[in-house]
Nucleic acid binder design. Structure first.
Lengths: 339, 339
DNA sequence: TGATCGCGTATTATCGTTAATTCAAAACGG
DNA sequence: CCGTTTTGAATTAACGATAATACGCGATCA
């Protein structure tokens, strides 16, 4: 066993004390006199001892590990989230086990089982769909701490997230307020997906007495710049073009903007464009793009805090609570210059 | 213990067999007759049994977990890498434990220790600096499987990575070939950092007989778009402006491009700009930006494969090997139209 | 002076699993 | 028909740590 590491037993053998004494000494028990403790600590240091966290977990019945499931990472915002979460958890002494579902329900379940098998103390999940949360709810109901990063007030599962419906509402409303009546939307239309943004869009339209036109809807089937480009192409090929477009994220918005550039359509004069997430590149696009903005750090901090509270609740979990963070708008050139 | 999960013992009690028999049955041992096996499997299924991976790890002395340390994630390319690695590892039945060093040496060491303590079977590391690898080398020398994602042929540690020196050389060379003689570089100048790109830049210059001018160097102190913007500002305030600029990554390049836009400097007529990493946004910038491109998937696949080989080597690790992937150029509008 | 207390440490049990060994009863063979 | 194999299991011992308990011994106390 070349790769063997130092165990308490090795220190015990070296010092002549028993394994238990060594364990107590290293953990600073008052039952061990100072002198002995020093000796043991010195030897442990010299041997470069690190406690076997696996063995500790087995006895303490907690792994100090949280499982994080994301759909996929090509979305820069999800990644910022991931890093912020890792940081937040590391600060609290937790490790982060990480898995992606790739938007595949099977893989999501696989990840869930893998985490449970590895005895993570809790999970943070960006679910593939929040119409189908049964498999997650089942785990929560067996008292497993879970916090979702996309919320649904009725899901019966804790969640901390951005109020996407409200963000989309605000974005659409902004377009309406700046004089637009024909407003297109670029967003996934998957009925199993997350429809908040579409709902916010529709709400703003109906409030303003604008009829919804399916032809002003484009499903990008993804969230890359190119997907946005082609979705915009579809929108703009309508007989009666939109004068404003809300894109469900900034990559799509950049793609839409790109289409305009290539086709001699001026932004914002001919078409106004607003995105979602306010990534750095939105601000620095050819025409700086307006976007729905929110504090990633706050979302992750609250999510982690909530999860920690669930983990700490030894017996029964408190009733689920859904916290929505209100986003705001960052208005840039892509939606100004009209009235 | 409300949160307790089902153990082998529970199945044993339910079926009347011993714990060991249940264990063998579930693992499909031929020593258990078919009938018994079926019975046990059915009960296990009914109880929703999942093996406790922690306990398994303690016995098998392997955790089927790999530790991944990145510097930070704001870099989209690093993130693509992270996801590709997670996928690759999941395919091979490994979990991914994830930590970021935030470019802080202390945190890097902390992550290293945390991983060792958690008994990960191996580590993939994007080191903060590959001038100071002593702490990592020490672990590798105690037979711990480690593969770096930034390579140094002399580090004594395995690595699979992009040949950044070569990429920078090619980028600079491209500028030279298109007629530029005054070529600026935007890259971190931290002598403890990763200097490959600067070296490639210098090599191309000297090969072309162009003298290096420190005034054509700007340290962005980060890698965001804004950092690139201000670095470009610094470069362009020189008495004798560069006509071509190589930026160490695409965010910086986009920042540089942005500066030009805002200051009435035409790209590529007045200044040519080339970046590194070929992220999606480079292609879709106001002026599509040329960039150094490489196959992320190949790098990660080779890195994981190498790591698996090290993990499989039970006794002594094979001699370290460094694999460099040759990058190529994607030429776009930002560096054409001159010569 | 013998019982009691405290101190410092050792011993034993435990976490949930796998591996090695043992064992009882049935099946077989000469 | 008795000894040997085979079969189907149970028993015991790890893995590396923590927790609970036990123990020897000097000091304290009635």
């Amino acid at each position: 066993m070349t790769r063997s590491s130092v165990r308490l037993k090795d220190i015990a053998d070296k010092t002549g004390f028993s394994v238990n004494t060594v364990s107590l000494a290293l953990r600073g028990s008052p039952r061990i006199p100072e002198e002995t403790r020093q000796l043991i600590r010195t030897i442990a240091e010299a041997l470069n001892y690190l406690p076997n966290h696996i063995a500790q977990s087995l006895v303490s019945r907690e792994t100090k590990t949280i499982g994080l499931i994301l759909t996929d990472i090509t979305n820069p915002t999800l990644m910022r989230t991931a890093q912020a979460i890792e940081l937040e958890l590391a600060d609290r002494g937790y490790g982060t086990l990480f898995a992606t579902s790739n938007n595949d329900p099977e893989e999501e379940i696989r990840a869930l089982e893998m985490f449970r098998s590895r005895q993570v103390d809790g999970m943070l999940i960006y679910p593939r769909s929040h119409r189908k949360l049964d498999h997650i709810r089942k785990i929560r109901q067996s008292n497993y701490p879970i916090v979702l990063l996309v919320g649904d007030p009725d899901s019966g599962i804790d969640a901390v997230c951005v109020d996407e419906r409200r963000g989309a509402y605000k974005a659409t409303r902004h377009l309406i307020d700046t004089g637009h009546r024909r407003i297109g939307i670029i967003d996934s239309a998957n009925p199993l997906g997350n429809l908040e943004k579409s709902e916010g869009y529709l709400q703003a339209l109906s409030e303003a007495g604008i009829a919804f036109e399916p032809v002003l809807t484009a499903d990008p089937q993804g969230h890359s710049v190119m997907k946005g480009y082609w979705a915009m192409d579809q929108l703009m090929s309508a007989a009666n073009r939109p004068t404003g477009v809300f894109a469900a994220n900034d990559s799509l918005a950049i793609g839409a903007l790109r289409w305009c550039q290539k086709n001699g359509v001026n932004v914002p004069r001919d078409v106004a464009i607003i995105g979602f997430d306010n990534i750095e590149f939105a601000e620095h696009a050819a025409t700086p793009i307006s976007s729905v903005n929110y504090a990633v750090d706050i979302v992750t901090e609250l999510a982690v805090e909530r999860l920690m509270r669930l983990v700490a609740a030894k017996d029964a979990l408190p009733d689920p609570r859904v916290t929505m963070i209100e986003p705001d708008l960052v208005i840039r050139e892509s939606t100004t210059g009209r009235s």
